[in-house]
Design a protein around this nucleic acid. Structure first.
Lengths: 335, 335
DNA sequence: ACTTTATTCTAAATCGGTTTCGAACTATCG
DNA sequence: CGATAGTTCGAAACCGATTTAGAATAAAGT
């Protein structure tokens, strides 16, 4: 008898399989005595339910899919995303859900089909490409989703307080005496537009007008794009005295470029990032940046997702904003 | 008709479910004509097999478990490990396998039970704690395993050419004129002992004798431990001129400590790491280190695992060593 | 024309649980 | 004491596929 089934237990206890199932799942119509007997026997026999059988019958898997794509191909080495996923995983496990990676390459065509095939109860979407057809289809499917760092109407999202973060960084620069502030921002997404408004809010509060050529777009998490933007900025007749980068990782591109241009940070040019990844705190000078609370974002998003799964009818879409923190490094000079 | 089943197809085509199953799975006893009809209809109806049903019957899941634990709690932010996992995931998907994270906290008691519950066809073990009972039990279970960076008798492992790597680093230091070389090495594991022998080989080739107090143990991936070891070394009456660190990440601890001691790298002290993570290439000076080919390690390990799964009888345990590469930075001075 | 053989298909059992509905039994009450 | 209600349990259908053993048909051989 290789693997113990409910039938084996039922025989040993002299009851029907139905009774065993009920006893093990806490149904009310089983007497205390038999329930205890059954539970004890199950323990002794090392009974382990069969996930497939259960899933087949109940049509739920206690399995959460994670769609993870980053266009820049850095994979899990993307520190912010991997931080989110890591804590999401932990939270899911704590609540009895497993995590399966969803891909479109497995031969089932698309994310949706992959999820359906594995009967994921819900999906967490961690991506930087929300325009893709695949992601859109998934979001519009019957599968409960929670989205990180993007907002889809009628769906729950979890993101940082991007307005606040961007505002805080800008304000900090201004306090340090900067007026000529350039913003290399990511491509047009809900996150970007929030960061932009934080930026503009702070500027207009201080009556600062930012010239158009100080606003450049560079893909998130792409050091090369930021390097190029940096170059452009420093070539202007009146270059900025401070540059805001799309994220810490992109900043590395800018850093290299500034090095090449023989400009030293922060004496010749001040810089700030966004994310607060570990890397930004070991480069010299330490980067002043806004820390995104990846662990919390991952945790909250799974919490929300599971709630949505378990209360499908009553659960309502929310946009959850997680506060971050301004990290003061040494990358901004007083002028 | 919410979700299309084999029965729906069978009705539409006027054949039995059995025939549909066979046609879809490439059995030989189906005529070309009906096979084509069935496949076309399946397409049209957007048929998707039910993973649970299939798994229940066949007792295989096309699902690979990943056991991932790191004692230092850095989670997926552990760049080397996450690099391995990322490429493992990609390779698995390419071959039609899904990836599920295995934890012991899900309530099924142990890794083994979790794997059995989900009927993982095989498991990839990425851990830095191979002494744990849980991991041992898993390795000794009936489930096919491939282990990263550790060797269990009779099981397949994938690791870097640690002897070579350590040898190359040491040799490089010696070429640069160093004789007083300290080695902060990780705790006793098969990987560590390989690195130690690479180190000793290089030293004895050059007739260098390393005093005992130059050999310190510090947990892998633990900057604090390395910081402390660094301090001890620099307090010696004759401190070393070069320090080898357990890994790049740990080196950061050493770097901070040297900063505190007001020693500059590489003028006052030369250092090398191990791993070649991104971080080591953005700190200044760039770290000289040995790059471990995480993508290849992940890929090869999944390849081996799937082979083991699909050829259980004939497959034989192997110890696969993946070559890395010496990365020359600016952290070693000529003396 | 009658086996024999090959080809193509199907009936039905099975995997291991869950769940509905009703049976059996006990306790309660008028 | 008979009817009613409440408690505890089991029979059986079912989820959606796979697979064995054999039926039906067609083709080939003697």
């Amino acid at each position: 008898m290789q693997v113990v089934t409910i039938k084996d237990i039922s025989k040993k206890c002299g009851v029907s399989p139905a009774t065993v199932s009920k006893a093990l799942n806490g149904y009310g119509d089983i007497s205390e005595a038999t329930r205890e007997l059954i539970q004890k026997t199950a323990q002794e026999m090392h009974y382990l339910p069969n996930a497939a059988a259960r899933q087949l019958k109940t049509n739920t898997s206690h399995n959460i899919g994670i769609v993870y794509v980053d266009q820049t191909g850095s994979g899990l080495a993307h520190e912010y995303f991997s931080g989110v996923i890591d804590s999401a995983k932990e939270e899911a496990e704590k609540r009895g859900y497993d995590i399966t990676f969803i891909s479109s390459s497995i031969g089932y065509g698309s994310y949706v089909e992959h999820c359906r095939y594995r009967k994921c109860d819900g999906v967490l979407i961690v991506s930087d490409d929300f325009m893709s057809r695949q992601v859109q289809d998934l979001v519009n499917s019957e599968i409960p989703t929670v989205i990180i760092d993007y907002i889809f109407d009628g769906h729950s999202s979890v993101l940082s307080k991007n307005v606040d973060g961007s505002y805080a960084l800008t304000k900090y620069l201004i306090e340090k005496g900067h007026r000529k502030i350039a913003f290399i921002h990511g491509e047009t997404t809900s996150v970007t537009s929030k960061r932009l408004s934080g930026f503009y809010n702070a500027c207009s509060e201080e009556g600062i007008k930012i010239p158009e050529d100080y606003m450049l777009e560079a893909r998130y998490h792409d050091p090369d794009a930021s390097a190029e933007a940096t170059r452009k900025l420093m070539m202007l007749r009146t270059p900025p005295t401070a540059i805001m980068y799309p994220d810490d990782y992109s900043y590395l591109g800018g850093m290299m470029e500034l090095e090449r241009l023989n400009l030293s940070i922060p004496d010749d040019i001040s810089v700030v990032g966004f994310d607060g990844i570990h890397l930004s705190q070991v480069v010299r000078p330490k980067l002043t940046t806004y820390y995104q609370d990846a662990p919390k974002i991952g945790k909250i998003s799974v919490k929300k997702l599971i709630h949505t799964i378990e209360h499908k009818k009553t659960s309502v879409a929310e946009e959850l904003e997680i506060p971050g923190k301004l990290l003061i490094g040494g990358s901004v000079a007083q002028i």
